[in-house]
Design a protein around this nucleic acid. Structure first.
Lengths: 224, 224
DNA sequence: TCGTATATGATAGCATTACTATCATAAATT
DNA sequence: AATTTATGATAGTAATGCTATCATATACGA
């Protein structure tokens, strides 16, 4: 059995999960963006890789920005899915939030539940490129089209967990968004700009991102 | 008297602060990037605005990315300058860090100490575009050329303040970089993606960014 | 089974971008 | 007075981000 996520229809022109070509676009675009970087990634290059044409890819996605939106939305849906999976049966609010932090910060491995997606490469893309989905002149339009709903939904879920731990805390959404973005930023820094972080890029990632996040989140809640 | 910052020479080909044309490039590029966004900003458009030519601008900056580097480096130098100015005579570590947080999060107004720079517009640029200086395939090379030294230096300064408050804290640099980036992110969200933050975009910015940061930073230090 | 809709491929074209190069001229320096 | 230096004027080029048109293959429904 293969699961798929129902993503906002406005992310694409034709649903890539439904066709062979669509799945090839997703599969190969992850590889290409991961290796070239989003700036140097073009539909022309992607078309060559999958032995198709630029025009065909444009029938699936309005442009490469929408494709990036699609990929990041998929990532956040996947992360939310994992959080639900592992925290669903935890009742105690603090333990639940703690487990959530663990999942957010854990190293991402390929998940066989979902074919066509290399989650490890996709995480690298989200780390390096995600902010480019909203740091544009069209943010507000894109937001009206609900393109950020994957990220917003996850943020809201974490904000609710935070409020379970500390009802009345005034910055639940801010803390949730900070938490998600900080995670990826610190991982980026540890890989590329080590002087901006205390985390190392080694497999053990010591001192641990997990501990940093936990102290920050629970610290903020206790300071309140 | 007009102050100028000595920025890393590799940020430019010819120092724009030394010539009339150079100063026009800086002055007008801030306006243009602020209004068009970095993606739609081009040297051609800038040349038209200042009645010069593309070729002339290329004699000052290798490309528009380097110009963005220059502007953000200027901004971080300016912020560090202000922090030094206002915290220089505070001895008590906690008060010092608290004042630092206030300066980082305060609304940025035009500073008459520096001609040619509209700090208010520049802050909007830093908020929306700064991450594009390092989210590229050339991060590591740019880092070797010390292009990030303005940000790194400020980070290190704040990390040291943090360590004065809590010696032995393991995440001083991570907390410092998180603090600076979170500030701008939350301001961006309050202006464009309000569901991701608790801050409002109103002039009073209530509840206050300042309080959020303080609880987060001191909370993290107390949790340790 | 025939007719038609749909998906893809093939090819072309076009405005804009991000440069690079060359030459002329004006201003500053020696 | 000679010459270096800064700027402007102009041209050109490969790549990018599309859009358009037409042919063909396949699927689907009557």
């Amino acid at each position: 059995m293969t699961l798929t996520f129902k993503l906002n229809e406005r992310l694409y022109l034709r649903d890539p999960q439904h066709t062979e070509l669509g799945r090839k676009i997703i599969l190969k675009s992850i590889d290409l963006i991961d290796s070239l970087g989003f700036e140097h990634f073009t539909f022309r290059k992607l078309a060559d890789e999958i032995d198709s044409t630029e025009a065909s890819i444009y029938r699936y996605f309005e442009n490469k920005h929408r494709l990036l939106h699609y990929l990041t939305a998929w990532y956040w849906s996947w992360l939310e899915f994992r959080i639900d999976l592992f925290t669903g049966n935890i009742r105690e609010p603090k333990s639940k939030l703690r487990e959530c932090l663990r999942i957010v910060s854990e190293e991402k491995k390929v998940d066989p539940t979902f074919e066509f997606i290399n989650e490890e490469a996709l995480h690298r893309i989200v780390i390096s490129e995600m902010e480019k989905t909203y740091l544009t002149k069209w943010v507000e339009d894109d937001n009206k089209a609900a393109l950020f709903i994957g990220f917003e939904s996850l943020c809201q879920k974490i904000a609710n967990m935070i409020l379970q731990v500390r009802p009345g805390y005034a910055f639940a959404r801010s803390l949730a968004s900070t938490l998600l973005l900080t995670t990826n930023q610190q991982l980026f820094f540890s890989a590329h700009l080590p002087s901006l972080t205390d985390l190392s890029d080694s497999p053990q990632r010591h001192p641990s991102l997990d501990v940093f996040l936990e102290q920050m989140v629970f610290g903020a809640l206790n300071a309140h």
